[in-house]
Design a protein around this nucleic acid. Sequence first.
DNA 1: TTGAAAGCGCTAACAG
DNA 2: CTGTTAGCGCTTTCAA
Lengths: 339, 339
Amino acid sequence: MVTRPPRLADVAKAAGVSTATASMALNGTGGTRIGADTRARVRAAAAELGYRPNTVARGLRTRRTHMIGFVGDDVATTPFAGQMIRGAHDAARKAGFLLLMIDTTGDPSETGEAIAALQERQIDGILMATMYHQVIDVPEEIGSTPVVLLDSRSADGSASSVVPDERGGTLGVLAELAAAGHRRIGHVTTAEDVEARRIRLDTWREHLTAYGLDPDELLAEAPEAMTRGGYDTAMRLLTRLDRPTAIFCFNDRMAMGVYRAADELGLSIPDDLSVVSYDDQELIAPELAPALTSAALPHYAMGRWAVEELLRRLDDPDAEPAGHLMPCPISRRDSVAPV
Amino acid sequence: MVTRPPRLADVAKAAGVSTATASMALNGTGGTRIGADTRARVRAAAAELGYRPNTVARGLRTRRTHMIGFVGDDVATTPFAGQMIRGAHDAARKAGFLLLMIDTTGDPSETGEAIAALQERQIDGILMATMYHQVIDVPEEIGSTPVVLLDSRSADGSASSVVPDERGGTLGVLAELAAAGHRRIGHVTTAEDVEARRIRLDTWREHLTAYGLDPDELLAEAPEAMTRGGYDTAMRLLTRLDRPTAIFCFNDRMAMGVYRAADELGLSIPDDLSVVSYDDQELIAPELAPALTSAALPHYAMGRWAVEELLRRLDDPDAEPAGHLMPCPISRRDSVAPV
DNA sequence: TTGAAAGCGCTAACAG
DNA sequence: CTGTTAGCGCTTTCAA
């Protein structure tokens, strides 16, 4: 005998009530109209039968699926962004939502298809996540679907978004250096034109200028933000006569290269050179010797904030879009010492 | 004026046919009963209106949601496992499926809840992924839902599963060493009792025994598979008089520690010591100096295989469960040299 | 070759 | 306080 899963009608029959009553008793809707005893009877019957509502049928009726579409450009792939998914997932689950994931491999033409695929499934809203902090246009396919941007801002501010407070994080790691007495702080960065680079660079510039130093003398740029680029740029900076006493790296990968360059030049970190960085990648920053002081990208917190904001917009679709800056906490480790 | 999304009835009306005809014309069902001209008219009307089927309504009727539940124990979080999601995602999408993700943080009591939450959403099948190669019991909540295990096997073989061919990968890296003339190959491993450790260790044992060597003399174990553990164990192995000429590391993180130990002892890799490893983590193996030869965990391929297998089981629920060993390709780099 | 009508399992309006 | 009924948008018999 094949046992089909129990449905509401089975529960209702077992409790001796109508399906309407059963529905309201289980969902707690309908105000006071359900008697306490009836409710208890229905609940008991549901538990007895192991009843689980069919949310597809419910969704058809209520127009709510309790699913959130998560579209990422390679986001599931890139190592640290997993935390973004995690943050979104946890916040969603706490509110009874699940994430329907889709990855576009960064291909913009796929984004439209991805959004459509999610909309067909009647998701209640969409999270659009990018691998790196970016400024993007909200795809027109979104239509009136509530959307929140994760790790990117909309060019026209038409959608809610959350991005890391790069400026705050940069000031934070620079303050570490300042507290240790460093003034001549070099910066190794990438030539790639991304928002993160721009803000970190500008903030560092301001900081040096405030000391009356010329930033351009202490800046070195590599084509890519990789170990190799960090090595090359650090070599340029550290072989000068008036080499900096500290280096602020665009990210941890470049910092790896800086470490290697210092090593080859016989400079000891942090005694001869202090190093601070950005991203705080778990496989790099704490593993380097000495462990690296770095500003963390708050991926988990951003993911969480994004769904909370999305849920808010589901309740109030006409609310003003909010742009949120998420603080980047500083992970203090052993790569900074007094001059 | 609020424009509600077009539904099938709108398309049917625009094409001058019934909804039944429209449905069949769009889905290509109903055999030959739809005339070519009618079909074209319906298709045109659908395109014109920008019609997108409501898959919730469809799912209610067909009992197919074209969604696959993906339950992972922290899988979204752990860095390299993103590739597993990617593989599953790509294969699913190609077949018109989407992944509904849920993370249990490794808590077994949450697993049951996760499965129930997915079943309520009427997913067509479930992928259960673990962070590391494990042997697990299929949770009873699964019931008759088709399931495939990812990176773990079921204790009783009752579910299809795919795991890395650890033995093959180990033989592969050991062959690299053998080809370079190494006989005295040490092994640094973890004390954690996981399937991966067991197989890699056993295979290495066999290999040494075949040369008439006593494996226990060349084995060193750390409490955890971290950099620190790699360092400590390598120190033990390398400070012996008859130190090994090569070390096979349980994983890349331990290899990092081995590198550090070799460095401190003034041993140059690969000239004084060859090193091979397992996992081929993208942030570690290629970034070390010298780049590390490592057996790759085929996460992407496993993810892909798992949904392909799941889709097969949707067609044929009574097929025998299949247990698949996915090959671990060797990434040859610069950490091996002749004795 | 097509249309009419039933029904998937649920919720919500309307009666009582 | 509770039951009856309609209907969410689609697919699929059944009848023509």
